[in-house]
């Protein structure tokens, strides 16, 4: 198993070396040189694919070790996560449910707000307002997640605890709100791009037929942009699923299946981040955390493949041509 990455790593590095070194004293013709340069760039292009392969390889190499002692079924559906007990329990079902709860609730908040903001930017705002607000929204998308985690933990959690008289403000609701704030700029920005990509002449055709701007929006623009908007929404959800710092700091950290939005949970990324630091290299617990990494990787890969499929369908549509 270990030979595959080495082989890939070697081909990856040998190609640039070949192009850089003058091979013989014979004058190298420009065609030959051009072909070599080309190969360097092709190799650079494939580097991302190689990294993907390496990520899969190392996740599985470190994670599959767990399954010599724990069955896949007990791992995925076991209801108890006590990795440091003796004997330890490695059931991640509560962690998966924690991730699902937080991702679902944050999407329920972020999707309408993100799409609403996109519709405002794309269709309501004047040209001038849009020129200012669109970059502002993009700017806010770059807010570091640790900052939102900090705000949720230090500002929002005590407020929640006071208002509703609940045992802790670090819970599903708080984490979902912070994740939603993080996802909204992404959803809004991608959705607005999709609205913007709908051909102008289709919108003009609709308006020229006496449609109001709202009617044009719901009957022509949104149907034309729906796949692009769908891509934005899925990517936003995928990000919420994989985001670490917010759920690490704000979700409360209790490995239980949530029954209310005021319950504390311990989503998958939070578990990895919280426990990896205190785990002996190569222990069963260490392997279990990599196995969680595999689950997380596959979940987000699934989201991304769906997003890619949706956006490919989007590209096939388009304006009519002569």
């Amino acid at each position: 198993m270990m030979q595959i990455p080495q082989a890939q790593a070697i081909t990856g590095s040998r190609v640039p070396a070949m192009a850089a070194a003058p091979l013989t004293k014979r004058k190298v013709t420009s065609t030959v040189r051009e072909a070599r340069i080309r190969r360097v760039f092709v190799a650079a292009g494939f580097f991302s694919v190689i990294i993907m392969g390496l990520i899969i390889l190392f996740l599985f190499k470190e994670g599959l070790g767990l399954f010599s002692t724990v069955s896949v079924k007990d791992f995925l559906f076991g209801e108890f996560w006590y990795p440091t007990y003796d004997p330890a329990d490695f059931g991640i079902f509560p962690l998966i449910m924690g991730s699902v709860a937080v991702a679902a609730l944050s999407s329920a908040m972020a999707v309408p707000l993100g799409v609403g903001a996109a519709l405002y930017l794309g269709e309501v705002a004047s040209h001038r307002t849009r020129e200012i607000l669109k970059p502002a929204v993009e700017l806010l998308a770059s807010l570091p997640s640790v900052v939102l985690g900090f705000v949720g933990m230090v500002v929002i959690a005590p407020l929640m605890q006071q208002w509703w008289d609940i045992p802790t403000g670090l819970n599903v609701l708080n984490a979902s709100m912070m994740l939603a704030i993080m996802a909204i700029p992404t959803i809004a920005s991608i959705s607005e791009d999709a609205l913007h990509a709908v051909p102008r002449d289709l919108m003009e055709a609709s308006l020229a037929l006496g449609a109001t701007r709202l009617e044009t929006l719901t009957r022509v623009t949104i149907p034309g942009a729906i796949s692009g908007m769908g891509t934005g929404v899925i990517l936003g959800m995928s990000r919420a699923m994989g985001e670490t710092m917010v759920v690490l700091m704000v979700a409360g950290g209790a490995a239980q299946i949530p029954t209310s939005i005021f319950d504390s949970v311990r989503p998958l990324p939070a578990t990895i981040a919280a426990e990896m630091g205190e785990t002996p290299f190569g222990s069963e617990h260490y392997h279990a955390l990599f196995a969680i990494g595999i689950v997380l990787f596959l979940l987000t890969l699934g989201f991304n493949l769906v997003a890619a499929y949706v956006s490919r369908r989007f590209q096939q549509k388009g304006a009519a041509t002569l």
Binding site: D201, A205, A208, G210, V220, G224, K317
Partner: peptide
């Protein structure tokens, strides 16, 4: 009341 046909055909999809 004032209909318009554009230079380039622009049927809806």
């Amino acid at each position: 009341r004032v209909g318009m046909v554009f230079q380039k055909p622009n049927p809806f999809p």
